[in-house]
Nucleic acid binder design. Sequence first.
DNA 1: CGTGCTGTTGAGGACGATCAATGACGGTGG
DNA 2: CCACCGTCATTGATCGTCCTCAACAGCACG
Lengths: 268, 268
Amino acid sequence: MQLISVYVYVSRMEKVLGVDWGAGSPLGLKLKSLGAEVDDLEILLQAVKYYVGVAAHDNVIREAEAGEQMKVLLAGTTCSYKRKEDGGRTILSFQHPGDFCDLHRYVLPDNESAIGVQALTDCTVAVIDYRDMDGLLSRPTLAAALWRASMLEAAIYRERLTSTSRGTALERVAHLLCEQLARREAVGIHASRLPFSQADVADAAGLSVVHVNRTIQTLRSLNVLKASHAIEVVDRKQLMRIAEFDGRYINVPKLVSKWTVRIKETRD
Amino acid sequence: MQLISVYVYVSRMEKVLGVDWGAGSPLGLKLKSLGAEVDDLEILLQAVKYYVGVAAHDNVIREAEAGEQMKVLLAGTTCSYKRKEDGGRTILSFQHPGDFCDLHRYVLPDNESAIGVQALTDCTVAVIDYRDMDGLLSRPTLAAALWRASMLEAAIYRERLTSTSRGTALERVAHLLCEQLARREAVGIHASRLPFSQADVADAAGLSVVHVNRTIQTLRSLNVLKASHAIEVVDRKQLMRIAEFDGRYINVPKLVSKWTVRIKETRD
DNA sequence: CGTGCTGTTGAGGACGATCAATGACGGTGG
DNA sequence: CCACCGTCATTGATCGTCCTCAACAGCACG
């Protein structure tokens, strides 16, 4: 199997890039970890109708939008959110490369329409028509992978729920950061700097911006975060200790064997 | 199609009951709302290896248990929970008749092992071996229904997350109660009394028992809850207003047409 | 060179946690 | 039948975390 290259039209930047979305890309690693086969990735990419670039702060999916297409995040960071009556924003989940932005909408149409997806950085998104989904789901391994993706989403919410109900602001923020680090690592992104603002953290953790700021300063004084403008983790172990974070729920074990072999064939 | 009757051995009460788990039962209504076909219910019930009775406060699934079988709640109320390091209990979700207790464990084995399920009332549970699941999933409508069940679980967590992050204790408790009322109604249970204690509400809402008590007393003074020993809702509309509850996420629309026809054939 | 977004700091106040004790109810055994 | 026990509900008092309001600094952008 050869690496798959496509041309991406990035609307804001208004230029054309040749980018690899193949087996070594976040989406490839994601599908792999969900137990899909290498062919599944190829078939998924063939079903892509077009690629979109979205600028930071723009909506990937508007809250009221009636969706007839599914979107997959290929590059950049987004969040799914809900508006509060006071105009505020509750971040339900961060989304990283390889994540399906609105799988929930395909599986349960109409009863989750109030959820929007917003770009936190400049992003690249793949768009697939609903009418092409049947073909994808006829492949048992791919269907199972999508089911697992749903379950993983549920597991992530579940963890967030416990962490949010539970502890102090310090624990909650630490947990949130650990989750993002682990999820990004699972798709091959090892950067220690996290691509979102303190305000985003506040909306996700259910805390005020002010208190998040103070919490982050505490983490900095503990030499867990770097004392810079951005959110950058320097002592991951300590962060996990503070959060009491057990990342096993992020990873899907026992399902990777086949892939590991095949990946070696193609990438080495 | 005839109504399906099975004999249930209830271990604690030590007696044998003839009970109907057919199309009109909570499980039947649940599958219907998930878009399954009538035959799917029959086939699911045929796959049931045995039925178990569990007494209130006992574990349906122990936290460390290595599961090779899936459990479906037929009668009674349970909760899925996680232990906190201090010994406390975080209730992740209440479970009502028709709910799958541990679908997550089947889809994502090994990475959710710390979750237990506890009976809050006396319960009846159906047990299905994992090795019989392949046969069930070979039916596309049933497989889709199980996928939707996963998504519904995620949606419930998502709502809980927003409500927990957001408001005051009053709103959170009100939301939690609304969710349970709506979910029970969706499977044909219209009782206004909810079958769990204030301590359970506290563990689910992430509040202290003391404060839950005071919150419930506030709701009683507003004539939303009945001034009795139990948790009984008398003014549902007002409760939903307090919680800003929109129950649409509980129901799965657009998927019921086939069933509605068939159900009339069998039940009228 | 303003305008907006993000980050930072200070002060006051509210909500909910914690500790502690008591009451009400049902079951169990002497 | 009553004493005892465990569970659940209730009440009071104190304390801490986190919210709110308010102001300001740094930086990117047009």
